[in-house]
Amino acid sequence: MKVTLKVWRQSGPDAEGAFETFTDVPVDPAMSFLEMLDTVNVQLEAEGKEPVVFDHDCREGICGACGAVVNGLAHGPGKRSTLCQLHLRSFNDGDEITVEPWRASAFPVVRDLMVDRSSFDRIIQAGGYVSVRTGSAPDGNAMPIGKPVADRAMEAATCIGCGACVAACPNASAMLFTSAKVSHLGLVPQGQAERDSRVLGMVDQMDAEGFGGCTNHRECEAACPKGIGVEYIAQLNRDLVRANLGSAAK
């Protein structure tokens, strides 16, 4: 089968970008989307042209490095899928496929399809950690945690920080990411000591990075490759109110 690709090309952060069209790209339905971009790049390099720059690492859907908006959908039309887990069998012969980078002021384009997601790192640095004494590992089960709580914390912890929630949100909001990172620590005992300062710091940083606010469209949840739910956003909201009331009382 053959497809026509419209790919966003931008030579640098401040450069003007434009779509480049590759017509009749020969593809196999079993190819992943990234393998298709690889074949385009092999051809470009053979012609002495600049290859299409895109982020990728594990190519098995667990690292969070890859991501692009395909025909208006973050990570493309797959369900709970990263871009690397999207295959050409999801398209038809002759399809025109538009590929663009995540669009958010907090995710500036580095080059082509690659965006700078260090705003996520700064949100983590503002509180997405637990301060612990290093040394030998504690005994397993020394700190009993109920199974339902452990499961909810684990579900939040599956966030790979790919940024699809931001890309898919009508407001380019990072609430799903931030709430998952606040909750996976805030739900378990180890995260209690810094629970208030964590949510206050991370929400402050999230706003400072220029992300939008949540309007409960739930597009993030639908685009998340890990299926993380918006209930963590409600959890963050509650934690933030609680933290403010707590600090006000002190």
Partner: peptide, 14 residues
């Protein structure tokens, strides 16, 4: 938060 819109139009899922 999103000064540049998607060229293909952001598609809604849900």
């Amino acid at each position: 938060a999103r000064p540049v819109a998607y060229a293909a139009g952001r598609q809604n899922r849900v």
